[in-house]
Design a protein around this nucleic acid. Structure first.
Lengths: 232, 232
DNA sequence: TAGTGGTCTAGACCACCGT
DNA sequence: CGGTGGTCTAGACCACTAC
């Protein structure tokens, strides 16, 4: 164990919190006190505290001190990619339609545009081992420089579609996840003959000015998708 | 704008990345070079770089330099609480059963215990405006000091149930989310008379030694739950 | 006024990488 | 070897809080 000092200090405080010697709301020793206790400089102590703050253990109030935070017991990390999930990955896609459409009221509202703006609609089917597992619709607000080449669109995830025209770092995305029963169209597309639930995932993309760039809705066969989240 | 220097440096580099002047894999200017460029000390520059690293923009290789990271375009933050979601919150609960059981093979396997260990099973219904919206089953490995008081159990979320006996900071949780059609039991519990999909959320709790502490399965009516995730 | 955290400096030594 | 990032020091000044 030749861990840096600031790691050791952070671990020590973390243990105190985990053993409940320090409870949420409690003040932890002042930076000066920690310097003395560990015989180190203030910058080192502050580095430890920065780690704890980053991991959600503590927060600081200038002029007062550092305090133990109430744990965020409902925050999870979720990895979502329409082509890959915990139990399945898409190995083939089929382009059903690419079209320029005028949005209906609901879509115009979602994309925060007027109804006379052009929107690219892309409808696809995703396959695994020859079976259709998901029906996918994407709506993209048309802008110049956008590649509407079928080759590029057919196999791309939502983010990949717009990666040509925008830096991926500048994008914000929102997911909405819910369960539905399929309508007749989707039953036909996904070869559903008996009762089966769908997992629906809506993806909404925003540019760096928080304006919507596109909306994607993917209807997965319930038996072909599991999403997984991990706390913190 | 009287932002600290380290914020300005971070923003400047961030902008270069967002404008694609710096692309994934590119090396950014060395710390010494940045010190000169911004007329500041190395610790200040390093603070800026620490922020960028934390936000996923860059990574560093000791002895080589700092490099622009490929954006994690599939990572989302999800807030999940079995009692509250984007479109609904539970206002009443009903305790169906609390029992000590011996786990079957599947459960014993999930909880990584032998089949002769005691497990607390809690079955509940969640209500909104008088209607049942979710059926909830929790399995907790029994340990001393665990409050099996019905009052405490009836209205608690999974994390709240174990918060008495363990520090919440020490807990890791995993979510598994999928869609299913209801079986006859659940149809009866949730007053489902026609086709309706269920959203199923499994919660698995681990202690600080990564040993399972409990498993919870919540079956939501599809029309009463939406989960939402935000990128980064 | 004394104590707290927030920012910043100008050094230092180290381990690691490339030539 | 020189250049890189990783760690660490011993100061400094500031704004804020509490008394």
């Amino acid at each position: 164990m030749s861990n840096p000092v600031y790691i050791k200090i952070a671990e020590e405080i973390k243990n105190k919190i985990n053993r409940a010697e320090l409870k949420p709301g409690d003040a932890i020793a002042s930076e000066a006190a920690l310097c003395k206790e560990f015989g180190t400089s203030r910058m080192t102590v502050r580095k430890s505290l920065a780690i704890l703050a980053n991991e959600g253990y503590i927060y600081s109030i200038p002029g007062k001190g550092n305090f133990v935070r109430k744990p965020q017991h409902n925050k999870y990390i979720l990895y979502y990619d329409e082509m890959n999930n915990a139990i399945n990955s898409v190995d083939k896609t089929k382009l059903l339609e690419v079209n320029i459409i005028m949005p209906d009221e609901k879509l115009a509202d979602e994309l925060q545009i007027t109804r006379n703006k052009n929107v690219i609609m892309i409808r696809r089917l995703f396959y695994t081992d020859g079976d259709p597992v998901a029906y996918d619709v994407k709506y993209l607000i048309y802008r110049k420089g956008m590649p509407i080449v079928e080759k590029e669109i057919e196999h791309a995830t939502f983010t990949e579609m717009i990666s040509g025209s925008t830096s991926l770092f500048a994008i914000k995305k929102e997911l909405t996840i819910y369960a539905r029963t399929p309508d007749e169209d989707i039953k036909r597309y996904l070869n559903i003959y008996n009762e089966l639930a769908l997992m629906v995932v809506e993806q909404k993309l925003y540019n760096s000015e928080d304006k919507p760039m596109g909306l994607g809705i993917t209807y997965f066969r319930g038996d072909y998708i599991k999403l997984q989240g991990i706390s913190q």
